[in-house]
Design a protein around this nucleic acid. Structure first.
Length: 566
RNA sequence: UGGGGAAUAGUGUAACGGCAGCACGACUGACUCUGGAUCAGUUAGUCGAGGUUCAAAUCCUCGUUCCCCAGCCA
C-alpha cells in the first residue's frame, strides 16, 4: 500500500492534503487529523466512491495518529437497506482500508439530533410548518426571486414545542407538517430559505425500526454527525459547497464543535455512468446481471471482473484531486490495471477459439513435459510443467490461409515457435464444406525443444500459444467491452435515454475454450494472464467441470492496431 | 437578468511572481521465446482582452465558457 501513498512520493500534495498539512502546521486541531467516509446505504459503491475512500482513509493513514471513520448517513429509511450496508463494508475492507471499531451510523445520533432540534425551537430558530410540499416549493421563490415567509413562521415557541412533540408522537400523517429552520426566505442561497429539518415518515428504519416516525433531513444531520465525531476535515464533493453555509448555520446556532469542510470534484470516467440512479436503473432494467456484473463500474463489479485493490488504489492516486469537474479517460484505469497485473499475474496458456494443429512427425504416443516460466516479471514465481503432444489446440487467429507480409504467425510453409514447445512449420491444412479451416498440419524440429532457437541460428518472427488437446480442460470465457459505445453516455439528444448508448457487444461469451491443465483447480477470484490474450479471472460461476473465466483486460495488441489501420 | 464554484497539451494533474513539468493516449524506433513487458524518442498546453511588474499560468480589471443549487433525496 505504500507504493500508491501520495505522501511517499516526492511530488506535491493535492489541495486537500495541502489544507490538512497547513492546519497541522497552525495547530488548528491540536495536531489531530480525523476524516470519515460517509456513504448512504442506498446502493453499491463504485469507482467514484473509491476515490473518496482513498482520499479519506489515505489522509488519515499518512498523518501520524490520523483516523478515518466509516459512517453510514442513513437518514432516509425509504431508500436504505442492510444489504447495502453489508456490501459497502465488504468493499471498503476489500479495497484495503480499516475503520477499526469506528463504524458509525447517523441513525445512532437520532436522539441527539432530536434534542438539538428542540434546542433550536427553544431559541426561536426553528418552527413547525403546516405547508404542503407543493406550497413550500411555491413559497421558496426561485433562483432569481426571493421566497415568502411561511404563514406558520411566527408560531410561539410553546406551540412549536407542542406540535413537534406531537409530530414525533405520530399524531400526523406523512407530509402533514415539517420542522423548519428559521433563517432567511430572501437568502440568495436557496438552501438558507428556511430549510426543512425534520419530516414525518411513518417508515421502518433498517436500524432504528419503528422507534421514529419523524426523520431528520441529511442537511440537518451531516454536519452535526461530523461534529459529534470530532471530524477535523469533512471532505465531500462539489455539490455540497452550496450547503456549507447551512451546515455552518446549524453548528453556530447549536454552538458545537466545527469541522472544516473541503469540497473536491467527483470522479467521472469515459464509456460508463457513475450516478447511483443510473447504476440502479441498469440493474433493475436487466441491462446487466446485477450490481457485481463485471461490466459495472461498481467495486463489486470491478472485483468480479478481476481488478485488484492495488490497481484501483493506484488509479485513485494517479487521477489526483482537484475542483475541476473532469472526466478521466478509462484507458488510464486500464493502464493502472495492466501495470499491476503484469507484475503479479501468473502466466498460463489458454486457447479461446480452438483450431486443431497436428504435428505429423511427432510420435503419436509421446507426451513431453515442458518447462514454462510462471511470471517473467517475477523470478520467484518459478516454473511449471505443461504437457506437449502430437495434437494441439492453437488459436484460429494464429493461422491464415493467405497471410499478409506483416503477419508473423502460421500460414502455409511458414514457421513459428510454439511457446515453450518447438518450432513448427506448416505443411498443410484442411477445410470443411463451409470453406473454413478446421485443421492445420505441421512438422516440428526436434532441435528446438523448449522453444529454443536451433543450432543453425534460424529465427522465427512469431511465437504462438497452444494447449495439448488430450490434456486441456474445457472452459468458458466471458469477454467484456465498454458498457457504452460513446464516451459520455449521458449525452443524448432530446427525448433520448442514456440506455440508448448501451453497447450491444459489451459481453461476448466464448463457450468452448481449452485451458492448460494447471488451471484445473483454480478458485473463484484467482487471476492469471492467458499468454498473448489478456488478464483473466475465475468467475464465481466456475465449477471444476466447467471453468469460467472473465477477461479483465486484453494485453496491448500492436497487431490488432496494425489491422485496424488497414 | 440570483447565489456558489471552476477553466493549463486529446485526457487527467503539477508549477504557491522567476526555465510550463509529470502521467495516460497517440506516433517513431530498439529489444524480445507473449506482436506482452521493457527502453529510447516524437507529438501537443496556460479560455479571451487589457493592466501591474525587470518578470504573470500565478496578482488586478473586464469578458467568455462550463458545472452546481429552486426534494419533505443524499
Amino acid at each position: 500500500m505504500s507504493s500508491d501513498n501520495p505522501n511517499n512520493a516526492s511530488g506535491p500534495l493535492d489541495f486537500v492534503r495541502q489544507i490538512v498539512a497547513d492546519d497541522l502546521g497552525t495547530g488548528k486541531y491540536q495536531g489531530r487529523v480525523h476524516t470519515r467516509f460517509p456513504p448512504e446505504p442506498n446502493g453499491y459503491l463504485h469507482i467514484g466512491h473509491a476515490k473518496s475512500i482513498c482520499l479519506n482513509f489515505g489522509i488519515a493513514a499518512e498523518n501520524a495518529g490520523g483516523l478515518c471513520n466509516l459512517r453510514f448517513d442513513d437518514t432516509n429509511p425509504c431508500k436504505e437497506e442492510v444489504e447495502y450496508v453489508e456490501s459497502i463494508k465488504q468493499d471498503v475492507r476489500w479495497l484495503g482500508f480499516d475503520w477499526a471499531d469506528r463504524e458509525y451510523y447517523a441513525s445512532d445520533y437520532f436522539d441527539q439530533l432530536h434534542e438539538w432540534a428542540v434546542r433550536l425551537i427553544r431559541k426561536g430558530k426553528a418552527y413547525v410548518c403546516d405547508l404542503s410540499a407543493d406550497e413550500i416549493r411555491e413559497y421558496r421563490g426561485t433562483l432569481t426571486q426571493p421566497g415568502r415567509n411561511s404563514p406558520y413562521r411566527d408560531r410561539s415557541i410553546e406551540e412549536n414545542l407542542d406540535l413537534f412533540a406531537r409530530m414525533r408522537a405520530g399524531e400526523f400523517p406523512d407530509g402533514a407538517r415539517t420542522l423548519r429552520a428559521k433563517i432567511d426566505m430572501a437568502a440568495a442561497n436557496v438552501n438558507l430559505r428556511d430549510p426543512v429539518m425534520y419530516r414525518i415518515l411513518h417508515a421502518t428504519h433498517h436500524r432504528t425500526g419503528d422507534k421514529w416516525c419523524i426523520y431528520p433531513m441529511y442537511d440537518f444531520t451531516h454536519g452535526q454527525s461530523d461534529s459529534i465525531e470530532r471530524i477535523t476535515h469533512s471532505i465531500c464533493t462539489l455539490e455540497f459547497e452550496n450547503h456549507r453555509p447551512l451546515y455552518d448555520w446549524y453548528i453556530d446556532a447549536l454552538e458545537i464543535y466545527h469541522p472544516r469542510q473541503i469540497e473536491f470534484a467527483r470522479l467521472n470516467l469515459t464509456y460508463t455512468v457513475m450516478s447511483k440512479r443510473r447504476l440502479l436503473e441498469l440493474v433493475q432494467g436487466g441491462h446487466v446481471r446485477g450490481w457485481d456484473d463485471p461490466r459495472m463500474p461498481t467495486i463489486s463489479g470491478l472485483r468480479r471482473r478481476g481488478y485488484s485493490p492495488e490497481a484501483i488504489r493506484g488509479f485513485c492516486s494517479v487521477v489526483g484531486v482537484a475542483k475541476f469537474n473532469s472526466t478521466v479517460d478509462i484507458q488510464l484505469l486500464e493502464h493502472c490495471l495492466r501495470e499491476e497485473l503484469n507484475r503479479t499475474s501468473p502466466r498460463v496458456m489458454a486457447v479461446l477459439r480452438p483450431l486443431k494443429l497436428v504435428i505429423d512427425n511427432y510420435p503419436a504416443d509421446l507426451v513431453e513435459e515442458m518447462d514454462a516460466v510462471n511470471n517473467p516479471e517475477d523470478p520467484s514465481a518459478g516454473t511449471r510443467k505443461i504437457p506437449f503432444s502430437r495434437e494441439l489446440w492453437i488459436e484460429q487467429d494464429d493461422f491464415m490461409e493467405d497471410p499478409p507480409k506483416k503477419y508473423f504467425r502460421l500460414g502455409p510453409g511458414r514457421e513459428v515457435r510454439l511457446r515453450y514447445g518447438y518450432f513448427v512449420r506448416c505443411t498443410d491444412f484442411v477445410k470443411d464444406a463451409a470453406n473454413r479451416v478446421v485443421e492445420v498440419h505441421a512438422t516440428y524440429d526436434p532441435a528446438t525443444r523448449g522453444g529454443e532457437s536451433p543450432p543453425d541460428g534460424r529465427k522465427v518472427q512469431g511465437t504462438i500459444h497452444w494447449v495439448s488437446a488430450a490434456h486441456a480442460r474445457p472452459a468458458e470465457a466471458r469477454l467484456y467491452d465498454h458498457l457504452f459505445t460513446v464516451e459520455d453516455p449521458g449525452d443524448v439528444p432530446e427525448g433520448g435515454h442514456f440506455t440508448d448508448n448501451l453497447n450491444p457487444r459489451s459481453l461476448e461469451v466464448v463457450p468452448r475454450c481449452w485451458v492448460e491443465p494447471s488451471l484445473a483447480a483454480a478458485r473463484a477470484g484467482s487471476r492469471c494472464q492467458f499468454e498473448r490474450l489478456g488478464y483473466f479471472c475465475v468467475d464465481p460461476d466456475s465449477t471444476p467441470e466447467r471453468l469460467v473465466f472473465n477477461r479483465t483486460a486484453t494485453l496491448k495488441d500492436t497487431w490488432a492496431k496494425i489491422q485496424k489501420r488497414t
